[in-house]
Amino acid sequence: MLTLTINGVAHEVDADPDMPLLWAIRDLAGLTGTKYGCGAALCGACTVHVDGEPVRSCVMPVSAAVGSAITTIEGVDGPAARAVRAAWEKLDVVQCGYCQPGQVMAAVALLQATPRPTEADIDSAMTNICRCATYQRIRAAVHEAARLMET
């Protein structure tokens, strides 16, 4: 048994140490907001925060996350998270929505570190794949969220 702290709650999980954190979060802790898209750190659908840093949980062994504070889309909160959600809803960013928990987690991490991101900051931080190509609205919503955080 391993103990994971997810969204401030301790979860005892019966996982092999090499099980990716993604599957421990989804299958064992039962939090399904974090998505699987590639399993190879290529798409970002599985993005969570580990000790505040955005991490692609599909390639992080669960054993490496023991003792860390894991935040998922279900638990992410704070001014940046609220601003991001408000901006995403205002601009109707989502289409199929499958990538969006990961996009939101990436955007929150970006804005927490860089409250007024440039276009280049967005290009380098928002590398998550959106097959529906909602990128134009993602970009606009990140800027909108930055504005909302200032007010």
Partner: peptide
């Protein structure tokens, strides 16, 4: 008019087939 699914899809509560438990 806003999409009806924006809130669920930005909060991680929208269930897809992969999320069925």
């Amino acid at each position: 008019l806003r999409r009806l699914d924006s809130v669920a899809k930005t909060s991680g509560t929208q269930a897809f087939t992969i999320d069925v438990r």
